[in-house]
Design a protein around this nucleic acid. Structure first.
Lengths: 150, 150
DNA sequence: ATCAATTATATTGTGCACAATCTAAATGAG
DNA sequence: CTCATTTAGATTGTGCACAATATAATTGAT
């Protein structure tokens, strides 16, 4: 009847990641509610804001998906909802009609400064832990790197 | 037009957590497919296996939910599916009819040794990184602690 | 004892994730 | 050129997450 502690929930790295991720997303809810978007939609905007600043818009759905590690089954309906909200445009490429070109609208661009203000608030609660957070972020980068290349 | 790098996707701890979590879950798919369950169902089994070993079964839905940080909206349908699979039982408490008592069936108990075997395979790929993983696990524990008590 | 408040779970509705499959456009070897 | 192959997205179906609300059992103050 004995089972060793390999199978205890609290010893599982996968569970820690899953929990930490969900709790962090919960922390974003006040901001997301204010912006009228969801968390994955916020991640899409982060990609598009950076691409916009670097003159890389429009971005194909595939390019967006590879940055987020999400496929068309997830992104197609998500991007349609964001289009409905007026945050982005979805247009077929003329050179290659298979490709869907995603670009920001003025309304989508206009959310960036709001997020900047919210982030100043968000970070206060964790500011004292800055060094630990930086270290964890580095380790997560290494870890994700391992998983990506497998 | 300049936006500083606070809003770059790859600088967001939240995105790293979200990605790492999803990629790890993908790594579990071969095992989960073999067992015929999903990842959240696997986490439920981890809780129940440990509770069983410690003589704590049955567990109320609330007790299960507090360990997993999940509420009844998620767990009620999930546990019904696991009941359909024959992995656990759902019975109302006689002392307090509001409570739903969850217990393992023989079939649910029988999956544990299969998981043990799969875990030996899974860990091989990451074994060389053991120290880094342990350190990250500790940091995630601290981090989750911060988020839980807020 | 009674009823307002609390507690445990269920239900409803929205939005991801993701596997599996489908469609249509582009490519490339012959 | 032509047809098999590849590629980009869309679609379908299942199963979470979670907010909001509903329901029914229990508790507690009076």
């Amino acid at each position: 009847m004995s089972m060793d502690q390999d199978l205890y929930l609290q010893n599982q790295l996968c569970f820690k990641l899953y929990t930490a991720s969900r709790l962090v997303i919960r922390g974003y809810q006040p901001m997301l509610k204010d912006l009228g978007i969801t968390y994955p939609q916020y991640l899409v905007l982060l990609v598009l804001w950076q691409a916009n600043e670097q003159g890389q818009l429009p971005l194909s759905l595939k390019a967006l998906g590879s940055r987020l590690h999400l496929d068309s089954g997830t992104l197609t309906p998500l991007l349609k909802r964001m289009q409905q909200l007026g945050l982005l445009s979805r247009v077929r490429s003329e050179q290659d009609e298979r490709q869907l070109q995603i670009a920001l609208t003025e309304q989508g661009i206009a959310l960036a400064p709001k997020v900047k203000k919210w982030r100043e608030t968000l970070s206060e609660g964790l500011a004292c832990q800055q060094q630990a957070l930086t270290q964890m972020a580095q380790q997560l980068d290494q870890f994700i790197g391992l998983l990506e290349t497998e």
